[in-house]
Amino acid sequence: MPCVDTTQLLKGVLDLAVLAVLREEDGYGYDILRRLRTAGLEEVGDASVYGTLRRLFQNGLLTTYVVPSEEGPHRKYYALNAAGRTQLAQSGKVWRSFASTMDNLLDEPGVAA
C-alpha cells in the first residue's frame, strides 16, 4: 500500500465530523460542507456530506427546520438533538481512544515520527 488514503479514513469518521460541526451551531447542507472544508477536511465530497446528513436524520440524531431567506431559496437547517449529542459524546470517546492507540503505535521506537 503506497500511503494512507484520506478518503478511506474520512468514510469512517465523517459521521463524527458532521456531528462535531453541528455541536456549536445549526447549519444547512452547503454551510456544513463549507465548515468541514474550512476545518481541514478538504477532500470531503459534496454528496457524502448530504448523504450523511440524511442518514443521521433518518437515525434520529438530527432535527431539521426550514428557514425562509430573503434573497435565496428556503434552507433546510440541521440541528443536533439529545440523541445526537449522546452519540457525539460516545463516538468522540471511541475516536479519542482509537487515535491515542494509533499515536502510541506510531511513537514506539523504530517508527519515524
Binding site: A47, S48, G51
Partner: peptide
C-alpha cells in the same frame, strides 16, 4: 467540480446508507 451525475448519485447513496 462534482464528478459525473452517476458518481454523485453513487456517493450520495453510499453515504446515506
Amino acid at each position: 467540480r462534482l464528478g459525473s451525475p452517476a458518481s454523485y448519485a453513487a456517493e450520495l447513496r453510499a453515504a446515506a446508507g
